[in-house]
Nucleic acid binder design. Structure first.
Ligand SMILES: Nc1nc2c(ncn2[C@H]2C[C@H](O)[C@@H](COP(=O)(O)OP(=O)(O)OP(=O)(O)O)O2)c(=O)[nH]1
Ligand SMILES: [Mn+2]
Ligand SMILES: [Mn+2]
Length: 426
DNA sequence: TAACCAAGCCAC
DNA sequence: AAACGTGGCTTGGTTA
């Protein structure tokens, strides 16, 4: 306690010197109480639903394991990437792909590319998906439920991510599955108390909007003014499909393409991710950036600033040191350029949602609501509220999230409510 | 036995 | 030679 007391003055001075005093006083410090309340609230888990899924999957996983061993003609550990590589690429002589430090890679993309070569590959793919979900979610989560209130409590870390994002641990409730059908089933086991609803509010295309604002790119701004969905538009272009016929998966691929290109992906990386030729990938990158000339300018200016100052700052004055950008090693320097650009958008998004959280928490208490914040997932807030309050809380949340920081184009939020987290998001 | 690393994969 | 960014968890395999 004595040490903390003596450190206070020098730390305050450092805040002033770095221009981060308001960020600390008006955001980070008040946020601590909000996070404490959220940790304390926790979230309700439908253990019966989880149990049902587990029961269904346990048999299937054993079946897959036995089948894989049968097809391999020997016992091996399906969880050992080294043993899997030996079976696939030495014993069965399938086509090896990329290599890592320890030998041939056996990751999802490699397996997908050799799926047609041997029956065992599909078995391994399904085993990977199921065992991941069982061992990371279905098994551990129910056992972490508190004895005293029957709810699941995470820990929010305010000082881990270098961009200013939050992170959660033990358990990490910011990485609950949603991509696959089975994943969505697991998510639907996150439920509201009887008589309550879960409300999910997620910023729309948040880092793209921030990019449009900070770069001033008119093409991007006008697109948002017309209420366009850039992720969907990219999906339609890249996959050569009608926007109306896109699946969630396809829009998610486009999300990766959009952010990848903005944050400096190479033609190699994009071609790997999209499984297309490098030339085509390079063409995408070129056309994309050419369409948004002000974005290119912004990227260049951000890199120059990072070189000059040794750091970048967000809209609300958060600093990210970028020492990488001044070293001689060109690989490290290139890394520094990419994270300088990324930190501005990711960090600003983190600033913005933190402001919204503080205001929502305060407003709910002022209005005497029972509705409360439960989780934050980077650009999403999950709340739990009595059914009677749902529509009022919904509007309060939308208002505060959109108004947290005025941007051009303005922030937009997708909100839904439901009995569980999955239905609240759809 | 505990601590660490690499690979892999969940999310944003 | 490397080649979007931010995290955390589990596993197998290795070291202290
Ligand atoms: N660099 C990078 N950032 C990502 C990636 N995925 C998500 N993010 C960041 C940027 C997103 O704006 C932000 C929030 O993620 P979301 O899944 O909510 O996507 P976003 O808000 O862009 O679109 P949405 O309209 O909510 O579907 O997280 C990624 O693959 N790479
Ligand atoms: Mn979003
Ligand atoms: Mn989101």
């Amino acid at each position: 306690a004595e040490a903390a007391r003596r450190l206070a003055a020098p730390m305050r001075e450092r805040l002033v010197e770095r221009g981060s005093e308001r960020l600390y006083d008006e955001i980070e410090l008040p946020l601590t109480a909000v996070l404490a309340a959220m940790e304390d609230a926790g979230v309700k888990i439908d253990t019966y639903r989880m149990g049902e899924i587990t029961a269904r999957l346990a048999d299937r996983v054993e079946e897959l394991e036995a089948r894989a061993i049968e097809l391999a003609g020997e016992e091996f550990m399906l969880g050992s990437t080294q043993q899997v590589a030996r079976i696939l690429f030495e014993k069965l002589e399938l086509t090896p792909g990329r290599k890592g430090k320890t030998g041939y890679s056996t990751d999802t993309r490699v397996l997908r590319s050799i799926r047609g070569e041997h029956e065992i590959v599909g078995v391994l793919e399904e085993w990977r998906e199921l065992s991941k979900l069982i061992n990371t979610y279905l098994g551990p989560l129910p056992s972490l439920i508190s004895e005293s209130d029957g709810r699941l409590h995470t820990t929010f870390n305010q000082t881990v991510a270098s961009t200013g994002r939050l992170s959660t641990t033990n358990p990490n409730l910011q990485a609950i599955p949603i991509r696959t059908e089975l994943g969505r089933e697991i998510r639907s086991a996150f439920v509201a108390e009887p008589g309550c609803r879960l409300i999910s509010a997620d910023y729309s295309q948040v880092e793209l909007r921030i990019l449009a604002h900070v770069s001033g790119e008119p093409v991007l701004r006008e697109a948002f003014a017309r209420n366009e969905d850039i992720h969907a538009r990219t999906a339609a272009e890249v996959l050569d499909k009608d926007q109306a016929t896109l699946t969630k998966d396809e829009r998610n691929i486009a999300k990766m393409v959009n952010f990848g290109i903005i944050y400096g992906i190479s033609s190699f990386g994009l071609s790997e991710n999209l499984e297309i030729p490098r030339e085509q990938a390079q063409e995408y990158i070129d056309t994309y950036l050419a369409r948004f000339p002000h974005v290119q300018d912004f990227i260049e200016r951000t890199i120059e600033r990072a070189e000059r100052d040794g750091h970048v700052t967000t809209l609300l004055g958060r600093r990210r040191p970028v020492p990488e950008i001044r070293v001689r090693n060109r690989q490290t320097r290139a890394l520094g350029e990419r994270l300088a650009v990324n930190s501005v958008m990711q960090g600003t998004a983190a600033d913005v949602i933190k402001v919204a959280m503080i205001r929502i928490h305060d407003r709910l208490r002022e209005e005497g609501r029972a509705g409360r914040l439960v989780l934050q997932v980077h650009d999403e807030l999950l709340l739990e509220a009595p059914e009677t309050e749902t529509s009022a809380v919904r509007e309060l949340v939308r208002r505060e999230m959109c108004a947290a920081y005025p941007l051009d184009p303005p922030l937009a939020v997708d909100i839904g409510a439901g009995d569980d987290w999955n239905s609240a998001k759809s």
